[in-house]
């Protein structure tokens, strides 16, 4: 079990900066994110977009802001659990918390900070009957470990960059690879499109354009997918894995059932310290709601600073704290 002072749910910019503010107050942090990489929306949705309203940066690319934040929090040695979603939330009698992720990772902490943005990014699922029954039994929406597919038969669906990238990558790994795309052309990065077309020409992959997958087959485990082409003719391709790659969309997820006060899909907080209705649990950044709330990264940073002051009293109930400027004391790393 991972033991920490603060468990931060969400490794976007606000979750990351919370590590800094907590670190100044000698609190250690562990971060959990449902996505396999840090950065949240900034990495997942708009890594190459410039942001213009971060104080001190006339303009900064989203991915660079994340890189800088990682550098800024490095002295405080945060630990990460990525690609896992917090499923279970238990408040113990002594006020501490136990969290359990989708992969069974357990975290014990004194404070929980929810910096979950718009919720978990969950894969968009195509409407195929029985698809969900086969999740984990051959159907998956994310390639986490490519080695899983070594010498296996794999069908990918989608036409975006991730479908193209994984096609190129898995072409050498899988025993047999099929890419199914609804349209006749790809709009992804020209490089990747060219590589995929080449692989198809060399018959290293099976490329099915203007086609859709509308049924899956199996006997408890996936055995094949049915593909309908533009002429409405249907063929079944035997496969071990089917990976639809249609991007991600945000959902609030399991934290809806943790007993926190909610307003639509946001967690209501007290603006004194961004605490939620459950003592010891804070919500900062886009996921919280209060009168006058602005969903800006810079507001999330401010919320993180105030949260840390209040969390300090939970983590160190018998100590007094007085604010010290980093310019005076520097950073005392762990």
């Amino acid at each position: 079990m991972i033991q920490t002072d603060i468990c931060i749910i969400g490794a976007g910019p606000v979750g990351l900066f919370a590590v800094f503010e907590a670190g100044l107050l000698k609190m250690r942090c562990h971060l959990i994110d449902a996505l396999p990489k840090i950065g949240g929306q900034l990495t997942e949705i708009y890594p190459r977009k410039p942001i213009y309203d971060i104080p001190g940066y006339p303009t900064i690319l989203a991915e660079d802001l994340i890189k800088n934040l990682m550098e800024q929090i490095e002295p405080f040695k945060p630990s990460f659990t990525l690609g896992e979603r917090v499923e279970k939330f238990v408040k113990n009698e002594d006020g501490s918390f136990n969290l359990t992720t989708s992969a069974g990772t357990e975290v014990s902490c004194k404070v929980v900070v929810i910096a979950g943005g718009l919720g978990c990014f969950e894969p968009r699922k195509p409407e195929i009957p029985q698809l969900e029954q086969y999740e984990g039994k051959g159907v998956t929406y994310m390639v986490i470990n490519p080695e899983t597919y070594r010498n296996k038969r794999v069908v990918l669906a989608g036409g975006g960059d991730s479908a193209l990238d994984w096609t190129v990558f898995l072409a050498d790994v899988a025993a047999e690879l099929t890419l199914v795309h609804r349209s006749e052309s790809f709009r992804g990065a020209p490089d990747s499109v060219e590589k995929v077309m080449e692989l198809a020409k060399e018959k290293k992959i099976r490329l099915m354009l203007k086609s859709n997958i509308n049924a899956i087959e199996g006997n408890g485990k996936l055995t094949g997918v049915s593909i309908t082409d533009q002429h409405k003719s249907v063929q079944t391709i035997p496969t071990d894995y089917f990976i639809p790659l249609f991007g991600l969309s945000p959902k609030l997820g399991p934290l809806e059932n943790w007993g926190l006060n909610l307003d639509k899909s946001a967690i209501t907080v007290d603006t004194f310290d961004y605490s939620t209705s459950v003592p010891g649990v804070y919500a900062i950044g886009d996921i919280n709601s209060y009168p006058g709330k602005l969903k800006l990264i810079l507001c999330g940073f401010h919320e993180a600073a105030l949260m840390a002051q209040s969390a300090y009293k939970v983590v160190y109930p018998n100590q007094k704290y007085s604010l010290k400027y980093t310019t005076v004391n520097g950073i005392q790393s762990f």
Partner: peptide
């Protein structure tokens, strides 16, 4: 525009 078309391409229920 291109950006919108790119995004629409990722939707399963287009």
């Amino acid at each position: 525009q291109d950006q919108e078309l790119d995004m629409l391409d990722t939707l399963p229920e287009l």
